[in-house]
């Protein structure tokens, strides 16, 4: 059976993604997302009971870089496409809920 993406779920995903959607967009995305999920759900006909979850689709592991500094961009290059900048900083709308620092 396929999962229905209703408007409530679209609204929730929009909040999580910091997106503001119009009424018509909510309706449009509900239908589109339901189609996409329905399509992906076809995979559920396969029995994956004995299959290890895949961490990556390439049969490659341990790709490393040595810890040697490489040249960075100049400040001008870094900010070249920034809509706004001051004193070398990217300037963005004021952050209210500051979760700064990972």
């Amino acid at each position: 059976m396929s999962l229905q993406i209703d408007r409530k779920m679209v609204e929730r995903v929009a909040v999580l993604s910091r997106l503001e959607l119009s009424e018509s967009e909510i309706a449009q995305f509900s239908a589109q997302l339901s189609d996409i999920v329905g399509y992906i759900e076809k995979i559920n006909v396969l029995d994956t009971e004995q299959v290890e979850p895949l961490a990556h689709c390439l049969p490659v592991q341990n790709v490393f870089r040595e810890d040697v500094p490489q040249p960075s961009l100049s400040n001008e290059q870094a900010l070249a496409n920034a809509p706004d900048q001051t004193d070398g900083y990217f300037i963005v709308p004021k952050i209210l809920d500051d979760n700064s620092g990972a």
Partner: peptide, 10 residues
């Protein structure tokens, strides 16, 4: 947060 109504990002 020293840019008035905006924030700077480093």
């Amino acid at each position: 947060h020293t840019f008035g109504n905006y924030s700077g990002v480093d």
